[in-house]
């Protein structure tokens, strides 16, 4: 029984051995092949497709808008018209002639005030509502309706109330972004496990301690979801509000460019708005990640 098995083993291993002798030195791994190449490959796998797609889009756009009768400017036209806006965000040549970076910063300042207020008020109101079943039942349908009102619809009311453009714009941001913050905070508070409430009760935490030590950390993932939706809505609202209220912001810049037929400038402004909105979203997501790292129950 043993003999044939041994024989086939020997027969099979002999040619294999000679093959490995040749291939081993070639496959010897180096730092280059184990670390750097896969790293580069991972980076390029994420970077190359968007770059190709972007190039394609610009190409098609260029083709479509190159004809003499085209209503919109082509990328090359935009570059020629608005080169100063694109390459230098922070120039100042006159009171109304400043770089888009400055305008974006002015808008961001308004967003910071409006969204900051909305965050504080939204979390507090959400916490109170989440603690009371009755308030939740009563207010939730109202909030769900108010949530869907578009930002600009608040503007006339806000202008009538404040009689000034800057506070009106801030109020529009506030009122647009507060609903998701309230609703998500309330849901987060509702979902605090009874266990945590029992711990707080045995330790006899008072209301303020309970808020800071149990409610906020426990509901943090929900609260940050609300904040993330809120910051997106704020940025939507600021552009719309500034188009109507005037001033220095990026929204007014678009309106102004439209009125003086500087279409190329509008495209550049759109790119700025999109990029900043994207960065705002990422910043909140990053902070959320930092803040809720330990909060997952095990």
């Amino acid at each position: 029984m043993n003999m044939p098995v041994l024989k086939t083993n020997l027969a099979a291993s002999a040619p294999m051995e000679s093959a490995t002798v040749v291939s081993l030195p070639m496959a010897k791994p180096s730092y280059m092949t184990t670390r750097i190449l896969p790293g580069l490959r991972a980076v390029s796998a994420r970077v190359v497709p968007p770059v190709i797609m972007l190039a394609l889009i610009f190409g098609v756009w260029q083709l479509l808008c190159m004809k003499p009768g085209a209503t919109l400017p082509s990328p090359s036209r935009i570059w020629a018209d608005a080169k100063d806006l694109i390459i230098d965000p922070f120039f100042i040549t006159g009171p109304q002639d400043i770089g888009l970076g400055w305008r974006v910063l002015t808008s961001l300042q308004r967003v910071a005030i409006g969204f900051g207020l909305a965050s504080v008020v939204g979390i507090l109101v959400g916490a109170v509502i989440g603690q009371s079943i009755w308030a939740m039942r009563g207010l939730d349908p109202i909030f769900q309706v108010l949530r869907t009102v578009p930002p600009l619809a608040w503007l006339p009311i806000s202008l009538a109330a404040f009689r000034d453009s800057n506070p009106s714009a801030i109020f529009v941001i506030f009122i647009t972004s507060i609903w998701p913050i309230i609703i998500n905070t309330a849901v987060g508070i509702r979902n605090i496990p009874q266990d945590y409430r029992n711990v707080a009760a045995v330790v006899q935490l008072n209301q303020v301690e309970f808020f800071w030590k149990i409610m906020i950390p426990s509901a943090a993932p929900y609260i940050f979801t609300g904040l993330r939706i809120g910051i997106g809505l704020s940025w939507l609202a600021i552009v719309a509000a500034e188009m109507l209220t005037g001033g220095v912001g990026i929204g007014f810049f678009i309106w102004d460019a439209w009125n003086s037929s500087r279409l190329s400038d509008i495209f550049v402004a759109l790119a700025y708005i999109g990029t900043v909105g994207f960065m705002l979203d990422r910043i909140v997501a990053f902070v959320a990640n930092l803040a809720t790292r330990g909060a997952q129950a095990s």
Binding site: V199, K213, S218, G294
Partner: peptide, 14 residues
Amino acid sequence: RAVVFQNHSLLPWL
């Protein structure tokens, strides 16, 4: 009357 709960109930963020 401190309690040791059925499922430990430690606060996960602390």
